[in-house]
Amino acid sequence: MAHLASFSFTSSPSNSASSLSPLLQSHQQPHLSSPLQDTLINIDNSATMTNSYKYSVLLPTYNERENLPVIVWLLTKTFQENNINYEIIVIDDNSPDGTLVVAEQLQKIYGEDRILLRPRAGKLGLGTAYVHGIQHATGDFIFIMDADMSHHPKFMPEMIRLQQAKNLDVVTGTRYAGNGGVYGWDLRRKVISRGANFLASVLLRPGVSDLTGSFRLYRKEVLSRLIESCISKGYVFQMEMMVRARQFNFTIGEVPITFVDRVFGDSKMGAMEIVSYAQGLWKLFVAV
């Protein structure tokens, strides 16, 4: 029985993706080791070991003095524990709080090959920050995430595994599916988020559950191509990336993530954001 199951697992790559979360759990519970699980664990390890790709993390920052060291620490820990080759590219938009000084200290600790500083003269927007970052990225794949710790690096190995299992172009974190979720959101925020996402899914039919999320793994050339063709800014920019990805027939996968609202600093969400979201959504509806 176990033999049969492990055979079907190894022979069909599509099965491996659906068995990913049990794999992760089996790592943490060695006492549950059956012959089947041993096979699964071996496959799981080999998938990580044979991974010779390099992953670049783009971290656009503006006043993240408190968050940056912790997020870099968490990233480094995750990558080291999973034997993943990485670099972290900090794109600081001349933060007045001295984020760049902290980043320089981090560079001394972790090395200039691991932490790359690519500061810019001022606040120039998210899209151009990614363009700027990609120009200096040496990785085969690019992670984009928020530097405020609302996105936890612990989900990255799972995103990488899903990407490899299905040979995907994009893997996006989703707060809305499976075991995903949020922390620190009141009812109002949840209704706005859900309403916005429903409206977008009706108008754009993108085929992914979390359109406005910004924790994603891209093949490098796919990200360049997408940014080149995107016209929007802010929240809508993240949404357009997914819609364009579908338009170009790139393959997209989803990994459930938890989203912990900013620990340090203020979260930005007001009436102005809702209006600009609606305008951006309409532009995409007409343009894509």
């Binding site: 075991n179 979720g181 620190g184």
Partner: peptide, 9 residues
């Protein structure tokens, strides 16, 4: 059904 994740916090 929007899941809260205090454990993640």
């Amino acid at each position: 059904t929007f899941r809260d994740c205090p454990e993640a916090y």
